[in-house]
């Protein structure tokens, strides 16, 4: 069975792995995301373009909080 929608790990191990992942995603959303939102807001105010594919953007990281 090839699927990624549900983790293969079970029970407590699975819950701990997911809790760690969610904590990482939240940290990323709050810290790196906070900086990104600030830069984006400044771009909006100045009428400039925020480049989503610029190398330094945190959106490129794997642990981005994905919207289910």
């Amino acid at each position: 069975m090839h699927t990624t929608d549900a983790p293969a790990a079970r029970g407590l191990r699975r819950d701990l792995a997911l809790a760690r992942r969610i904590a990482g995603m939240l940290y990323h959303y709050l810290v790196a995301g906070g900086r990104l939102r600030g830069r984006y807001r400044r771009c909006q105010e100045r009428g400039e373009t925020f480049w989503v594919d610029a190398a330094e953007q945190p959106g490129h990281r794997d642990d981005t909080l994905r919207r289910p």
Binding site: Y29, F50, V52, Q57, G59, T64, L65, R67
Partner: peptide, 15 residues
């Protein structure tokens, strides 16, 4: 890149 950007700009009541 746009998907990541979208995830980051979503407001907390959504997240």
């Amino acid at each position: 890149a746009l998907d990541g950007f979208f995830s980051m700009i979503n407001p907390w009541p959504v997240v």
